[in-house]
């Protein structure tokens, strides 16, 4: 039981860190979707350059924990949600390589830079959208492992109003996170204003899409609102998230960098936390009204024991090294790459 908790905590921790750190990397692409400036582009490049490979590893860790620790869940997600996960992978491929190519291309001509930029931005959008769709689909309850036809088995679980609106919510939240982080990455007032404006817009978008998610849940027959009311802790989390919005607005407007970052991070944690609390111990809701539960889907004890130890020992190495990386490149990224 103890190791089950260790393993589960690491799974949640890596998902959370992926949302907070990797999510911001994706968001940095998304905020450039509508408009960008050469200066802002430069700040973004410098801010995520040294750390994006590390941020992105949290996803791989989460995948490994799920197939080793919760194999039945991994199987159902990768079967029923094969299509959205595959599209997510395409997004990750295009975004990751376009980013690297853009920065390490030896000849920085306008034409190819523009091409990399476009692929980076659109790849970021696709990735965030499909991360959200996948998670939305897990909680909606249209997954049917015994489906007889292709549509109910592989399309219906995720191609619906609710999952897609969760996809957009994820996109907006990640973009918001990125904008808030980036405000403090540069002293130039012009760039600061650019990111402050972006943070505002994406915060508004998140709130608006958040409301749509509730409507979509209603339309798709998910009693999200009732579930929320019956879970006091989730209510509290969402209440905090919503209640802190005015304060959030004012810190962003005043450009209080550290506070805004902390609050934006906390917002994300609260929303994810509320979602988890609502669902625990269910990991996947099925179309017959049943669910796949975390505890029931766990691997045998011997596996959880070694996995737990591997994670505990691993974090002894990772956390200090990661800390050093952030300290070295904190605030101001390197002036030139290499």
């Amino acid at each position: 039981m103890f190791m089950y908790i260790v393993v589960l905590s690491f799974l949640l921790l890596s998902l959370l860190l992926y949302a907070l750190l990797g999510g911001a990397d994706f968001g940095a692409g998304v905020i450039q979707l509508l408009s960008t400036t050469p200066k802002a582009e430069k700040v973004i490049g410098r801010a995520i350059g040294p750390i994006w490979e590390a941020n992105h590893m949290w996803l791989v860790i989460a995948v490994v924990i799920s197939f080793m620790g919760f194999p039945a869940i991994f199987k159902v997600v990768s079967t029923a949600l094969h299509i959205p996960v595959f599209i997510l992978l395409l997004g990750i491929i295009f975004r990751g390589t376009a980013y690297a190519f853009k920065h390490y291309d030896a000849i920085k001509d306008e034409k190819s830079q523009l091409m990399y930029h476009r692929v980076f931005v659109w790849g970021s959008l696709v990735s965030t959208l499909f991360i959200g769709i996948t998670f939305g689909a897990m909680s909606l309850g249209k997954i049917d492992p015994n489906a007889a036809d292709f549509y109910t088995g592989y399309i219906a679980p995720w191609f619906n109003f609710f999952s897609i609106s969760v996809g957009f919510l994820t996109t907006a939240l990640f973009a918001f996170l990125a904008a808030v982080y980036l405000i403090g990455e540069n002293e130039d007032p012009e760039v600061k204003d650019f990111f402050i404006a972006k943070a505002w817009k994406w915060l508004l978008a998140s709130v608006a899409i958040g409301i749509v998610v509730f409507v979509a849940a209603y339309v798709d027959g998910l009693p999200l609102f009732n579930e929320l009311i019956s879970s006091p802790l989730s209510m509290l989390a969402i209440g905090f998230a919503a209640g802190s919005l005015p304060l959030m607005f004012s810190t962003i407007r005043k450009g209080k960098v550290v506070l805004a970052r902390l609050m934006a991070g906390a917002q994300t944690v609260l929303i994810l936390g509320a979602w988890l609390l609502l669902h625990y111990p269910h990991a996947i809701m099925l179309s017959n009204g049943g669910s796949l539960d975390l505890y029931d889907s766990r691997a045998p004890d011997a596996t959880l024991a070694v996995l737990g130890w591997a994670l505990l020992l691993g974090s002894l190495f990772i956390l200090p090294a990661l800390g050093y990386l952030y300290v070295v490149f904190k605030g101001h990224g390197p002036e030139e790459s290499i």
Binding site: P50, A54, V306, S337
Partner: peptide, 23 residues
């Protein structure tokens, strides 16, 4: 899965060290 879970640590250290080396 055991080697994969240890590999996670190795990748992490690799990615961090790479960031330090390149930049």
């Amino acid at each position: 899965g055991m080697p994969f879970s240890l590999e996670g640590t190795a990748f992490f250290i690799e990615a961090i060290a790479l960031g330090l080396f390149l930049y």
